[in-house]
């Protein structure tokens, strides 16, 4: 699935563990079935944390995870889809 299909974006840049997962859960709960949430984080630990969260959460499917650089800072992007 391409990343353009994200229906909502959650910006948790500048927030460290455990905030990215907790805010992802909060935003995920507000999604409609089929929606894709994009989470943008500066916490490198979010790569394994959000993966683990999606694996243990019913109805959450981790579509993609990638690293990018924004303004010289590494950012970690996660795409979580809510099951239909």
């Amino acid at each position: 699935m391409s990343t353009e299909t994200a229906t909502e974006t959650l910006d948790v840049k500048g927030q460290n563990c455990p905030m990215p997962v907790i805010k992802t859960k909060g935003a995920f709960d507000g999604l409609a079935a089929g929606d894709v949430l994009e989470v943008v984080s500066t916490d490198s630990g979010s790569m394994s944390d959000i993966k683990g969260w999606a694996e243990s959460t019913e109805g959450a499917e981790l579509v993609d995870q990638k690293e990018a650089t924004e303004d010289g800072t590494p950012v970690y992007k996660h795409y979580v889809r809510k099951a239909e």
Partner: peptide, 11 residues
């Protein structure tokens, strides 16, 4: 507090 809030996110 970190474990509690994280566990809540895990349902």
């Amino acid at each position: 507090l970190i474990l509690a809030s994280t566990a809540a996110a895990f349902g």
